[in-house]
């Protein structure tokens, strides 16, 4: 399933931030989003993930295909690592968390409460959630925050395996993951302010 984004404009708080974004993400490929802070990478990812409507443009091939990893991991501190993962697996109608635990070296922590994990361990748990969803398109927002070099390598390996199995990934990151990936620079897509006299129903 190819994810095709055509001439997408996205808005944050009612104000356009990016416009004219187009790309196609084929199975087995990864696309890295780059751009300065505040340009709207998160907004773009949330729009593609279906959390907010686009201002303009079309997104095709996203329906029920996407697993989304945000800044926060959605972990419950009073549940154990295994319980957290099992929950997300069953929400997506899957079972079997062992492979995800193995991929991110969480086996030894499986009965630890998520609240007792370090920031990096939490992040690893959050990322391992992507594996249990069994969705082909991964959309990830700064996935490597608070990961050490070792864990970043673990993460890159997981992405590579996912791509080999025919999945695809759309990642906003500043780190070089060592992937063969296209890069989309969001800088040129920064939304231009509309004409000042254009005082219409949108006010802007």
């Amino acid at each position: 399933m190819t994810l095709i984004v055509t001439d997408l404009s996205v808005a944050r708080g009612g104000i356009p931030v990016l416009e004219g974004v187009s790309f196609a993400l084929e199975p087995g490929r990864a696309l890295i989003l780059r751009g300065p802070n505040g340009i709207g990478k998160t907004t773009l990812l949330r729009t593609v993930a279906g959390l907010q409507p686009p201002l303009k443009g079309r997104i095709a091939g996203a329906e029920d295909q996407i697993a989304y990893a945000a800044h926060s991991d959605g972990l419950k501190p009073t549940l154990t690592v295994a319980e957290n993962l099992t929950f997300w697996a069953s929400v997506f109608g899957r079972s079997g968390i062992e492979q995800a635990l193995d991929s991110f070296d969480l086996q030894s922590l499986r009965d630890r409460h998520a609240g007792a994990l370090s920031a990096g361990q939490k992040r690893r748990l959050g990322l391992s959630r992507m594996l249990v969803t069994d969705r082909p398109v991964w959309i990830m927002d700064e996935p490597t925050v608070s990961l050490d070099a070792n864990s970043v390598a673990m993460f890159a390996a997981a992405i590579r395996r996912h791509l080999e199995q025919g999945g695809s990934a759309l990642i906003a990151t500043h780190i070089d993951l060592g992937l063969e990936a296209e890069v989309l620079d969001t800088g040129p897509h920064k939304a231009k302010p509309p004409e000042i006299d254009d005082f219409d129903g949108g006010f802007l």
Partner: peptide
């Protein structure tokens, strides 16, 4: 408000 947001945008 919209004009102020526009200024920030520019």
């Amino acid at each position: 408000k919209a004009l102020m947001a526009r200024e920030r945008l520019e």
